[in-house]
Nucleic acid binder design. Structure first.
Lengths: 147, 147
DNA sequence: TTGCGTGCAAAGGTTTTGCATGGCA
DNA sequence: TGCCATGCAAAACCTTTGCACGCAA
C-alpha cells in the first residue's frame, strides 16, 4: 500500500497540533493558510493541500464538499473522542452549515442492509448525511423567509 | 418568490429534450456542452450553467458534489420514474467512482429514525453514501494490489 | 416593444503542478 | 547522502459575471 516513506516535518507537526485543538470543526484549506499566516508562520498553499491530502489518506481528516462556492471542507477526527468505531457518522445541516456528530447503532443496521441486500460496503467515515437540523427546521416553521 | 417572467427558448427546449432522454444519469455542465457541440448545436457554457441553475431551482434537476475534481454533478429527475419519492438515494464507490442508484425502503427507516431520535431531517436527494461497490470488493479480495 | 436569454470573453475562486531548494531520517 | 517536503508561481479547472445583441412574448 504505502510504499513511500513519509517524513514528519515541522509544518506537518504544527498543522496536526492545530488540528488537534479543533476536532470536529470544519475548515477549508484557505482557512488553514489564513490561520498560520496570522500566527506569523506562513505555510504555502500547496503544502497545506498536500498535507491535507495525506491526512485524508491516513484517515485523520475527513474531506467534504459542502459549500459549493468555497471549495472542499475538511475536518480533523479526534481519535480519542469519535469516529474510530463504526457507529459514528456525520450529519450536515444544509441551512446553517452545522456539522453534527451522531453515535448511533442505526447506522450499523443500514450498513448491514446495504451490504446484505445491495452488496455495497458503506464507509460511514466518509459519508455525510445532508439535511436540516432541529433549529433550522423550527426557524423554517416560524419565519417563512429571512431576506 | 419567482417574480421574474421566464422564457422558453430553443436552447432551453433542446436541453430539456435531451435531459428527458437520460433520466437518472449524472452529468456535468461540461458534458452537456460537449454533447451539444458534437450535435452541431453549440450552446455557450454560461447558458448551460444558467439553465441548469434554473432547472435546479424548478426541481427538475438535482445537483450533487460527487467527483471532487470534475465539478458539480447534475441529474435530471424523471417525474414518472424515479427520485421524486424519498426512497431513492445514491451510493458512490470510492474505488471505481461508479454512482449507483438505489431505490429502497431502508433509507426511509433511517430517515425516520434520524428525525424521531435526533431531530435531523434527512435530505436523501443530497446525501451520497460512500463506500465500496461489489466488484471493487471482490477485486480487493483477490488481488491485493494493482500497481 | 419590453425585457429575458445568449454568447463571448474576462474575471473569480479553488486546486494542482513543475522545479529548484530546504530539511528529515 | 538520498529522498521527501516546501515555496513560489504558473497553470488548470470550474463557475460566475458584464455587456452587447438576439429573441420570446
Amino acid at each position: 500500500m504505502a510504499s513511500k516513506i513519509q517524513y514528519n516535518t515541522r509544518h506537518r507537526e504544527a498543522l496536526i497540533e492545530y488540528l488537534e485543538q479543533i476536532p470536529g470543526q470544519h475548515f477549508t484549506a484557505a482557512d488553514l493558510c489564513r490561520y498560520f499566516k496570522e500566527q506569523g508562520r506562513k505555510i504555502g498553499t500547496a503544502t497545506v493541500y498536500r498535507q491535507l491530502e495525506r491526512l485524508v489518506e491516513e484517515g485523520a481528516v475527513n474531506k467534504y464538499f459542502i459549500d459549493e462556492n468555497s471549495g472542499a471542507c475538511y475536518e480533523y477526527i479526534n481519535p480519542d473522542n469519535c469516529c474510530h468505531h463504526p457507529s459514528c457518522f456525520h450529519c450536515k445541516c444544509e441551512k446553517c452549515g452545522r456539522l453534527i456528530h451522531l453515535d448511533c447503532q442505526e447506522i450499523k443496521m443500514l450498513s448491514r442492509h446495504l451490504l446484505d441486500h445491495h452488496h455495497f460496503k458503506l464507509d460511514p467515515m466518509r459519508t455525510v448525511f445532508y439535511g436540516t437540523c432541529q433549529e433550522c427546521q423550527q426557524e423554517a416553521g416560524t419565519l417563512r423567509e429571512e431576506s
